[in-house]
Design a binder for these strands. Structure first.
Lengths: 356, 356
DNA sequence: CATTGATATGAATCCTACG
DNA sequence: ACGTAGGATTCATATCAAT
C-alpha cells in the first residue's frame, strides 16, 4: 500500500491517517477544529447577527473529549512524518494550549510558536476584552534531535533582507480569495489566507516534497503546494468542501520561480584546500592575504597556513587575525593572480564546475 | 492573620502563597521560570558568550516536575484571588503550553492570550529558525462566569481611540531601565519592561486594588503598582533580588494622573425617566425628538413613550426609529426648551449635581 | 471614469445591575 | 440563583450605489 500523491481523501481524519504509510510525508499543516465553546448568538452593535463558527464539526462535549481527539490525530501525524519532517498546527487561545501540551507530551519538539497577527481581525463588539487579533501556529519536529528543512536565506530575502520573525502580519482571507457559494455566502467558515500557507510551505519544505493536510477544508494547502511545486495529500470529511477544493486546485498552475525553487539555499561546494592544491588552483608555499593585504600567511602542504608563529586551518587563522573565536576562512583569504587579489572561495566553484 | 500590603515576602513561592488569606487580592501578575532546557553554552557568531537564562531556578528535571510545580502555585493563586479578580501569566513557547493547559484544567477562564511582540528581540544567531520575537501572556478569571475589571475606555483612549488589540508592541527592557549590578552586568536575567506591567495593571485593576506578584524578581510589578496608586504584595526567593527591588520601589512616587485614576471609566448617573418627570426636568405629554426632528414621540406618565402605534421604553423606541434591535435612548432623544433642542441625557447629570 | 459614501462581514469563549 | 430591564458597544476592507 502506498500513498497517492496529489489527492484528496474523503473520510474521517484519524481513520484515514491510519491508512497512510509510516514515515511518508515531509511536511504537515493541520488546522483542526478550535472547540470555540460559543453559546447563543453574538450581535453586532447595529443589532445584526454575527455569523461565526456554528458548524457541528467544532462541537465537543468537554476538554477530555477534545484532548483525546487531538492526541489521536497528532499521534498518527507523528507516525506518518519522515524522520526529518516538520509539522505546523494552527489554533487560537481556546485550543492551542491543549494542542501544545499534547504535542510536547508526544515528544514533538517546538522550533517556534508563530503568531499570525491579523490587521483586520473581527473587533470585540461589546468592549469587554482586548480585540482578539491573532492566532497561533506551532512549528515542530518529530523529536528533539530531528533535523528539518528551514529555508533561512529565502525567508530572510523575502523579509527585506532581515531575519524573519515569529510574528507575521497577514490579512484574513476576504475579498475575491474567499470562496463563496452560489448563494454568495462563504463556503467554509474558517478558510485560511494563501499568504499564510505560502510562508509555511516555502519556509519549511523543498521542491517536490509531500505536504499533508489532515483537515483539508477548501484546499488552501493543496493550492499553495501545487503552485510551489510541492505535492499534497489532503484528508477531509465533508464532501461539499472537497468538491470546491478540487475545482480550485485544478485551476492552479505549478510554476515556482527561482526563489521558490530555493535557489538561495544552495550551499557552497564542499571542496577542501588539499583538493585545490592537488588540482593546481593553489600552490604550496604561496601567500594568502587579507583583503587589505595587511595580514599575510603562507600555505603549507598539509592544507594548513602559518603566520610564522602558529600553524592553523584557514578558518582559525582568519579568526586569529580578527581576534575572534570563529571565522570562515574561505571568505577572508585572497591569493595574487596576475598581480590582482582573487578570493580563494572562487576556486571551489571553478573546481566543481570543471569536474562536472 | 491578614496580608500585609506593600511588602515583599522572602521565601518559597508556594509556601508563602499558602500563608495568604483566601480571596484577598484583586490582580495577580506571574512571571514564572521558563524551563528553557538550554544545554551547554549558546555562543554568538563572534564567539562571545550569550547570557541567557541559565540560573539555577530555571532547571527542572522533566515536564512532570514543571507541571507539578505550576499546578501547585496556580492552585494557590486561584485560592487567594477575590471572586472577581483576574490573573496574568507570562511565558514563552517552552512553558506557556504547560501553563495554559493546567490553568484551563484548574477552571481558569481565558479572557485573552496577549502577544508581547518585541521589536528589538534577541536574534537567532545561528539562522536555524524564525527569530523568536515574542512572549505570550494569558489573562484569565477564576472561572467562566466570573466578573472582572477591564478599563476598556482607558485602553481605547491610550490606543489612539481605537479598541486595543491582543498584540502589543513593546521594547524589551534595556538601557537605563535595566537594573545592573556594581559589575555592570544585569541583575536579573528576565527583567520585564515597565511599559508591559503598566498596560497590565492599568487595564485590569482599580485604584487601591491589591496586586500580587508571586515571582517578584527585581520588583517591576511593585514599582508600576505603586506609581499607579495600586497596592502590591511580592513573593521572591532570592534575597539579592529583594534588596534591589526595595531600593527601586522606594524611589518611586505614587502619583497617578486622571487617566490612571480611571476618570474615563465613570459610568453615567443611573437616573430613571420617572425621576426626571417627578423633578420637573421632563413633562408628561411633551414631545421627544430625534436630532433631525424627523422622528417624534410623546412622553407617557409611566416613563414610556408612544409614536401613536407602540408604547415602548426610550431605548426600544429609538431602536425602532433606527430599524435596529438595540439603541441607547438617552443619546437619541431631545426635548425643546426655549425653542432649542436639548439632549435628555443632560438632565441626568443636572439632576445628580443638584441632588448632592 | 474617478470619488465618495453606505453597506456588508470576518475562527467570538462579547453586559450588568437590580429585584 | 435567576430572570428581566436598562443601556453600552465595532475595525478594517471589499463591494456596490450614487454623484
Amino acid at each position: 500500500m502506498g500513498n497517492i500523491e496529489n489527492t484528496i481523501i474523503c473520510g474521517d481524519c484519524i481513520e484515514e491517517l491510519k491508512k497512510l504509510k509510516n514515515e511518508s510525508v515531509d511536511l504537515i499543516f493541520a488546522d483542526p477544529p478550535y472547540f470555540m465553546q460559543t453559546e447563543g448568538e453574538l450581535l453586532r452593535t447595529n443589532g445584526t447577527k454575527f455569523l461565526g463558527v456554528e458548524d457541528l464539526w467544532d462541537k465537543f462535549d468537554s476538554y477530555d473529549e477534545y484532548d483525546n481527539f487531538c492526541f489521536n490525530w497528532l499521534k498518527e501525524c507523528k507516525r506518518v512524518m519522515k524522520k526529518n519532517a516538520s509539522i505546523w498546527v494552527i489554533g487560537s487561545f481556546q485550543n492551542i494550549y491543549r494542542i501544545g501540551f499534547i504535542m510536547q507530551n508526544l515528544g514533538f519538539w517546538i522550533l517556534n510558536d508563530v503568531v499570525w497577527s491579523k490587521p483586520n481581525a473581527v473587533p470585540n463588539f461589546s468592549g469587554t476584552r482586548f480585540q482578539n487579533s491573532h492566532e497561533t501556529l506551532l512549528w515542530c519536529t518529530k523529536s528533539k534531535n530531528s533535523k528539518y528543512t528551514f529555508n533561512y536565506k529565502t525567508m530572510k530575502y523575502l523579509n527585506g533582507n532581515k531575519q524573519d520573525k515569529s510574528v507575521w502580519d497577514i490579512s484574513i482571507c476576504i475579498g475575491s480569495e474567499r470562496i463563496k457559494g452560489s448563494d454568495g455566502k462563504k463556503v467554509h467558515s474558517t478558510q485560511k489566507p494563501e499568504k499564510l500557507l505560502y510562508k509555511i510551505i516555502l519556509s519549511s519544505s523543498k521542491l517536490n516534497d509531500i505536504v499533508l493536510d489532515p483537515f483539508f477544508g477548501t484546499g488552501t494547502t493543496g493550492a499553495v503546494a501545487k503552485k510551489l511545486g510541492r505535492k499534497y495529500i489532503g484528508i477531509e470529511k465533508e464532501k461539499k468542501y472537497i468538491d470546491v477544493a478540487k475545482m480550485r486546485i485544478k485551476k492552479i498552475k505549478c510554476e515556482p520561480n527561482e526563489i521558490e525553487k530555493l535557489s538561495m539555499e544552495i550551499k557552497p561546494p564542499k571542496v577542501g584546500i588539499l583538493k585545490l592544491i592537488d588540482n593546481n588552483y593553489l600552490k604550496v608555499g604561496e601567500n594568502l592575504y587579507s583583503k587589505d593585504e595587511n595580514k599575510i600567511c603562507k600555505l603549507l602542504k598539509n592544507g594548513y597556513v602559518t603566520d610564522g608563529i602558529d600553524e592553523l586551518s584557514i578558518h582559525k587563522m582568519s579568526a586569529k587575525f580578527l581576534s575572534t573565536n570563529n571565522h570562515n576562512g574561505w571568505d577572508y583569504f585572497y591569493v595574487k593572480r596576475l598581480n590582482k587579489l582573487v578570493s580563494i572561495d572562487t576556486f571551489r566553484y571553478e573546481f566543481m564546475e570543471n569536474s562536472i
